[in-house]
Design a protein around this nucleic acid. Sequence first.
DNA 1: TGTTAAAATGTGCTCGAACACATTAAAAAT
DNA 2: ATTTTTAATGTGTTCGAGCACATTTTAACA
Lengths: 357, 357
Amino acid sequence: MLSVFYLYLFYMEKIYTIKDIAELAGVSKGTVDRVLHKRGKVSEDALKKVNEILDKIDYQPNLMARSLKKKQIYSICVLIPDSANDPYWQPCIDGINEAKKEFKSFNVKIEIFLFDATNTSSFVETNKNVLDTSPDAVLLVPLFHKEAIEAIEIYNSKGIISSIFNNQLKSSSIRSFVGQDLFQSGRIAARLLDLLIKKGTIAIIHIDEDYENAIHMQEKEKGFRDYFNNLGNTDFEIKTFKVKHPQFKSTLKEFLDENPAIEGLFVTTSKAYQVAKIIAKKPEKKIALIGYDLLENNLEYLNNKTIDFLIHQNPKRQAYLGATNLIEHFIFEKEISSEILLPIDIINTENAKDYFL
Amino acid sequence: MLSVFYLYLFYMEKIYTIKDIAELAGVSKGTVDRVLHKRGKVSEDALKKVNEILDKIDYQPNLMARSLKKKQIYSICVLIPDSANDPYWQPCIDGINEAKKEFKSFNVKIEIFLFDATNTSSFVETNKNVLDTSPDAVLLVPLFHKEAIEAIEIYNSKGIISSIFNNQLKSSSIRSFVGQDLFQSGRIAARLLDLLIKKGTIAIIHIDEDYENAIHMQEKEKGFRDYFNNLGNTDFEIKTFKVKHPQFKSTLKEFLDENPAIEGLFVTTSKAYQVAKIIAKKPEKKIALIGYDLLENNLEYLNNKTIDFLIHQNPKRQAYLGATNLIEHFIFEKEISSEILLPIDIINTENAKDYFL
DNA sequence: TGTTAAAATGTGCTCGAACACATTAAAAAT
DNA sequence: ATTTTTAATGTGTTCGAGCACATTTTAACA
């Protein structure tokens, strides 16, 4: 019964055009256009008549017609670390290419610029190259704090929109950040270990890279400790272990030998496989291990159950959303979301392959 | 150096129009149009000339212009169970509305039809109503096997595209399915329990509803058992416990009392909270509990740690992807993906809120 | 060869928004 | 009162694809 009425409304929902408004207001479409775009040269009388109509109806400009007319091509440059040095970044490139493909028939050009993640000057240089193309927006991974801020300030002064993803960075010149809540991410790891083991020592392992991971690791540790602090008195002891790459193997072995009570490990970077390699050789005792990112190496140890869980930072989706946020701003005049926080995916042996979309 | 060359290519990448092709081939745009749309009435000579050009260039029709011209409004009807009876379905409605909003400026009208999940004839009736609007496509949750097949056959005979989501259903008339791999979903639950407990009895609990969950539950059980079978000889014993709603409480209590060795429970439907309510009253022993879906009730018991993990079936995204798959077919002429399997999200206390996007 | 039918090709308008340009009305200056 | 200036309003073209219709070319037949 009622559905007939709704059906009626459904089909009645008129889509108004500028011409419709002009006729309703008794003016020409030129005048309506001037009102809509506040171009002036409209008498008070005409302005009132048009606004009265606009108040009454819900005018939605036809975006097809608009972007057909506006021949402007928006250009977006994306700066990502070269995946040759670190496979973590490959999904980002895939994500950008997906966005590119999806919007290929629209007036946007997206270009990827790769830089060397181990080399600050490569980052600076690449930003210079990007600037030379004078794009409308830049999406970048701000690996190098100081240099990123500098680059973003320059973009901002030239009216170029900058968005970042993967790494958080505070600056009023940044229009958008896409990433994860790292504090929460640490809490998730803590909750998982809390379920896996009941007592003993847990170590937070920071494997530092050549480039800046400090903020990442600190936030994760804070969240991790926060979880156990809020638990109240438990049978857990939590230690932090920092290590740089070269002497990594021997020092970690030492650390484990010195702390026989260790029952669980939380590796705050994507290098859990390096830890797994070591503890896999100690089959006398199963140590719970949690790490980050679906790298080949990590998956290998996940599948042989040396790693219990991996936390997925979803770099592909981060890059994709960073790009589409900008694209949709340009072609659909959407607001740019200032912060997009992705869900933090928990991965085990069985759902790992699902996340390679 | 090299980048200058790429830059050049980048800006040179010409976007061809039908007019361009016509000029290049030395024919009129009408002829090009006939070739592109295989409308016939083209001489072999002209066909060859146009195809030669088309082979050389990468012609991408301007979708703005196309959808501006084609005033046809595609209509898609979506059939979802009413969330008044089962809150599981509310996110589906949200997902459809999101798709609706996203594509509101395009020539698509999406209408949601709700039916009563506990009532077969409501489903049949709603399908009749949908048929009366003669839509271009139907997206439905095929809760009732036989009736769904029948409805889909009718749609097919009228040239209406049908897609399904949430429940798998085999029929050659179905163009698309969006859902999860339920077998794998069972394996994930198994892996989680394998990590939570080392030995003892594990029960698979099927809480049957009035409507058809049978295939769902069977597949999940198969996957669950498959995981443990492949583990080889373990200290686990796996039991299955089926129960219908009315006598639920007492029979489950009985079952637990009769099986004191039970260490873990896997509830194959979204009713884990009902089990949690019972075991929460037995604090003398922590029983590991895994269930499905982020319902209010489930989250409550997840947060007080009676439920250890929930598996997220992502109904919102299922509905959203089901809709966009069809929408993009109509407006961008994309191929309809015949099967979209969503990742199976593992939820604990800490990442639960992330999944309410 | 001339006439007609059929096939092939080309032309021109439309969709809605944007904007340049033409036209008209009102105000200011002579 | 008439011209000039300025403000206000209207008209018409463009974007690219799609399609109806007009026109031309070729084939068929008397």
